[in-house]
């Protein structure tokens, strides 16, 4: 079997990866935006820019930032709080 055929047989893995990447990126952006709105923070100029790309000043100003303090700084993604807890 050719390389192309083998790749075709394994396409479900690649499709899954693509869906995972796209979906997670969309979800993180939506949640970030919602979080920004909820925290009354100024939105990034482009609404679609996630918070992890925001300036350190913005992150420092977030009172709930410590929730993701345990994430390695190199991949610190965003303020992570459970704003949708049932008890909220």
């Amino acid at each position: 079997m050719s390389w192309r055929d083998n790749l075709r047989k394994g396409r479900s893995h690649l499709i899954t990866v693509a869906i995972l990447l796209v979906a997670s990126s969309v979800i993180v952006r939506i949640e970030d935006s919602a979080l920004q709105r909820e925290a009354h923070k100024p939105q990034p100029r482009n609404q679609m820019v996630p918070l992890r790309h925001a300036s350190p000043d913005v992150l420092a100003a977030d009172p709930k930032r410590e929730r993701c303090g345990d994430v390695p700084s190199g991949r610190r993604p965003c303020p992570d709080i459970n704003r949708r807890r049932p008890t909220d």
Binding site: H13, L14, T16, V17, L20, L21, S24, I27, V28, E31, D32, L35, P50, L51, R52, R67, C68, V71, R75, P77, C78, P79, D80, I81, N82, R83, R84, P86
Partner: peptide
């Protein structure tokens, strides 16, 4: 409406996504 995880935000995906992608590959 009850999530089993703390939240579906960056922290969750930062942990889950690398594993799921590496697993598929």
């Amino acid at each position: 409406g009850i999530p089993p995880v703390d939240a579906y935000t960056g922290d969750f995906f930062a942990h889950a996504l690398p594993f799921l992608v590496a697993n598929e590959l």
